[in-house]
Design a protein around this nucleic acid. Structure first.
Length: 274
DNA sequence: AAACGGGTCAACCGCTGGCCT
DNA sequence: TAGGCCAGCGGTTGACCCGTT
């Protein structure tokens, strides 16, 4: 497969954008949209490649871009999400309205990484990381997961709100995520068949999750780089992970947001307690 | 005032995966 | 099924800024 040349074409401009170019691009997209980035510069009369136009629009010209320094809250959110997701800047950016992946990446490398190093607060030290290989390697059926969850709920927590711990939520380190909703008791179960996109958590993390007194919320698997449509329903494990962070960062306080996610994933909000 | 060096960030590069034919 | 195109992603670069000497 031969890759088509991009900016290597003679006559295509590179480097910083001028105000005039910005205006041309903005005007064109506002009038016609950006159906085909490759064709756009020619149609708009810009001597740029489509890739450059796309980048300029997404990272700078888009009207919903938030300008200015990152707030402390935003920085904390990035740190938390980075612990969960790693260098998946687009996934992190999806959780921060108005911020681009490029911007978040820059902030991480120029501020946050150094701040963490200075404070000696690494994900490992903070206790949010554990090798998923510590999970059980035996796959369980949905019913077994429900049973194990219910069994574990025998102490001070209701069965509905009891998260399935790594030990309870069985997994295989090289498999896919599948599952079904058990609508009879509002519990959602899954078999984990892939750990590639799964956050890593350790005992401390689960202690924190278990101690959190939160209502059940739903999660977006896209945060882990997967398609919600394919991955739904969500695992109790992931729900509780998201629940934890949502509660601690006030990121997801919009019912509409969760409703939208749930709808996109093909489920019903009624199945959950929000 | 000039030189230097570190920090910042916009932009580029190259790769990947999805979609279409 | 293979090839080609495309958008999107993460890593990297380099120009610019600003504080220090």
């Amino acid at each position: 497969m031969v890759r088509a040349p991009c900016c290597e074409k003679m006559g295509l401009k590179k480097g910083p954008w001028t105000a005039e170019e910005d205006q041309i691009l903005t005007n064109y997209i506002q009038l016609h949209g950006h159906g085909n980035w490759r064709a756009l510069p020619k149609q708009a009369g810009l001597l740029r490649c489509g890739k450059s136009c796309r980048l300029r629009w997404i990272n700078y010209l888009r009207p919903d871009i938030k300008r200015g320094n990152f707030s402390r809250e935003e920085e904390d959110t990035i740190i938390k999400l980075h612990e969960m997701l790693g260098n998946r800047w687009s996934a992190i950016a999806a959780r921060l309205p108005g911020r681009t992946d490029n911007e978040i990446k820059n902030v991480w490398h120029t501020h946050l990484k150094k701040r963490l190093e200075k404070n000696h607060v690494t994900p490992e030290i903070k206790g949010r990381s554990v090798d998923i290989s510590t999970f059980d390697h035996e796959l369980k059926t949905d019913q077994e997961l429900v049973d194990s969850s219910n069994l574990a709920a025998g102490s001070d927590q209701t069965e509905e709100h009891r998260p399935i711990s790594p030990q309870q939520c069985s997994s295989d380190t090289s498999s896919l995520i599948t599952g079904d909703i058990d609508t009879s008791n509002n519990n959602m179960c899954m078999k984990i068949e892939s750990s590639d996109d799964f956050p890593e958590m350790d005992e401390n993390f689960w202690s924190e999750v278990l101690s959190a007194d939160n209502s059940r919320i739903v999660s977006d698997f896209s945060a882990f780089g997967t398609e919600p449509q394919l991955q739904f329903p969500f695992s109790p494990l992931v729900i509780e992970v998201e629940q934890f962070y949502a509660t601690n960062s006030n990121m997801y306080d919009s019912t509409e947001y969760w409703h939208d996610l749930f709808t996109r994933a093909g489920g019903s909000l009624d199945l959950l307690e929000i």
